[in-house]
């Protein structure tokens, strides 16, 4: 279990190897990578800047990760979230979950992303070609995505 907040990019293969090398108890590894889209609401963006709350951000990510480990039998997990100025196509976030079987890994990865999006203190600001910029609004759908995790994990796919 670990979480990292960093400005540097990450390499998915390297991160998976670090979690799974010399392990024979893992039967499934799921990764989710979030990347910067080149447009927002149909209009192009030139960059996206991520602000965070040093200390609280890491604590919230660790709390969310601990919750996932309490709900599913995970062999290993990792959350990496980037901060600072990013550009279209850049990586933003990486979630890796490993378990003996795939269902736990799939569900835990989705749970981590849903919880991270509405709990971890990060804020995105988008810049447009004309030099203007604006803060991204929180989406209702992200809050709604949390609702299903109120159920037990086995019913989460409903």
């Amino acid at each position: 279990m670990s979480v990292r907040v960093q400005s540097e990019d990450f390499d998915i293969g390297t991160e998976i190897s670090a979690l799974t090398d010399h392990r024979s108890d893992i039967g499934a590894v799921v990764t989710f990578t979030g990347t910067v889209r080149g447009s927002a609401g149909g209009a192009p963006i030139t960059s996206m800047t991520l602000e965070h709350y040093p200390g609280m951000t890491e604590a919230e990510l660790a709390r969310v990760e601990a919750e996932a480990n309490a709900r599913w039998p995970l062999s290993a997990s990792l959350i990496v979230h980037r901060i600072g100025e990013l550009h279209p196509g850049d990586n933003i976030v990486l979630v890796v979950t490993a378990s003996a079987h795939r269902h736990a890994a799939f569900e835990a990865a989705e749970f981590l992303m849903d919880y991270l999006k509405s709990h971890a203190p990060f804020w995105k600001k988008e810049a447009r070609p004309d030099g203007t910029c604006s803060w991204v609004d929180a989406r209702e759908t992200d809050a709604a995505a949390l609702q299903r995790w109120q159920k037990s994990p086995s019913k989460a796919a409903e």
Binding site: G34, L50, H52, Y53, M56, H81, I92, V93, M113, L116, K117, S118, H119, A120, P121, F122, W123, K124, W135, V136, D137, A138, R139, D142
Partner: peptide, 10 residues
């Protein structure tokens, strides 16, 4: 005590 908009990470 911190004040901020709804979070938009991920």
């Amino acid at each position: 005590i911190a004040f901020f908009p709804p979070v938009t990470g991920g």
